[in-house]
Amino acid sequence: MKKKWIATLLTAALTVSLLGCGGGASDKAAATDGAAAADSGKPYIAMIALGFSHQYWQAVKQGAEQAAEEYGVSITFEGPETETQVDKQVDMLKTALGNNPVAVCMAAIDTESVAGILQEAKGKGVKVVGFDAGVGEAEADCKCTTDSIEAGAIAAEHAAELLGGKGKVAVIGYSQTTVDSVERNKGFIDKITNDYPDIEVVDVQFGDGDHLKSAEIAKAMVQANPDLNLIFTNNEGSCIGAYNGLNEVGKIDDVKLIGFDSSAAMKEAIRNGQIAGAITQDPIGMGYKSIEAAVKLVNGEEVESFIDTGCYWYDADNMDDPQIAPLLYD
């Protein structure tokens, strides 16, 4: 990313307020926004995320808007209220395509649900960029995201270090269908299995990123495995849910917890040592690079099929470092 704008972006990502959900504006209003963007006289790019209200998505939006300004395109950015509303997201995609975008950037909740729609759009010349969770390989002209397998592997390395190379671990994921959730788990489990033979993965469950569901899963895990040493959670909702659950059964000091992404609650718990650490992404860069890739594709320029937007481990020791702090959102 270019130095002339990165400081502005980082500041914006840290201060952006939660202005509501993807459904905070009605579907009709979203359609109107898309129509206005399409009629702006600039190439129109539709960006559809897994969600909208969490500050992570607002940081992605900030990066995308900066890229749109620099590259002279018009964009819309939307997502459903929760990251499980497949039908709502499909409707958003159909509405956006009705406004004839030159490209679509999408993080699909369920890749199969949008595969046919995106393939039809591609047949009409629309470029498709997968970001964050991405879309199916057959539908994507390129993907801009964290290398989720590598991110999971980094989490596994830190888990092994925390455990001294031996023990029992469990995994709480947020989705069995969203690509990045699947890949984060794969990276973690494969690394543990292949490189740390004295660490056993005893359970893998999914809680939809919901705090209450994830809390119940964590409590069931420690009940079924009294000698459990660590839980890896692959998104913010799973992490805080597991944190709450371990607290409820008095196991927060006995079972180590590793998270993914960030929030005010996660950062506080990491500072006080109750969460060992987490992986953070670079949502600002992801938003910027997604729009940049879409513009290049529309212009016929060569674009790599996979653009890694990076990730970092953070804990109480490094979370205030200049490289890490701007990437930790509330």
Rank of each mutant, 00 (worst) to 15 (best):
L19R: 14
E112H: 14
A103R: 00
E157N: 11
C142R: 02
N244F: 09
A68I: 09
D208K: 07
I75D: 00
T309Q: 06
P226R: 11
Q58N: 15
I291C: 04
A31P: 03
I199K: 01
V86H: 04
I75T: 05
K61P: 04
L118S: 08
D33Q: 11
E292T: 09
E137G: 12
A67T: 07
C239F: 04
R271I: 14
K28N: 09
N194P: 09
D110F: 11
T11V: 11
K256N: 10
P80T: 07
V60F: 07
H54R: 08
G23R: 08
D180I: 06
D87S: 12
L327K: 09
D330K: 14
G41Q: 13
E157F: 03
Q274A: 11
N99M: 13
A108I: 06
F131D: 03
V129P: 00
M221Q: 10
A12Y: 03
G136Y: 03
I279S: 02
A67G: 06
A155N: 03
E65F: 09
Q62G: 04
R271H: 13
E78P: 04
A140L: 12
S26K: 14
D147V: 09
E161C: 12
C144A: 07
Y56C: 09
L19I: 12
I189Q: 04
S305T: 15
K3G: 08
G130D: 07
P80N: 11
A115E: 09
K213L: 15
V202L: 12
S214P: 07
K3W: 08
A325H: 14
Y71V: 05
K94G: 12
Q85M: 13
G277D: 06
A133P: 02
G287P: 04
G287I: 05
D141R: 03
I231A: 00
K2S: 10
A108P: 04
N234C: 13
D39N: 15
A316N: 10
Y314D: 02
F206N: 03
N185R: 06
G51D: 03
I6D: 03
E292D: 10
A153N: 00
I75M: 03
R271P: 07
W313V: 10
D87K: 07
T76D: 09
A278Q: 05
F52A: 00
E69W: 13
D33F: 06
A96D: 04
L212E: 15
N318R: 10
A37H: 03
E200D: 13
A108E: 03
G164H: 10
K122N: 04
P43G: 11
A220C: 12
A12L: 06
D180Y: 06
S305W: 06
V102M: 02
M319E: 08
K127L: 10
A25S: 15
S40V: 13
N234M: 08
E150V: 05
K256G: 03
N194L: 10
V128F: 05
A30R: 07
Y243K: 07
L246S: 05
G165Q: 06
F306M: 15
K191E: 08
V249E: 02
K143Q: 08
A38K: 00
E292R: 04
A218W: 00
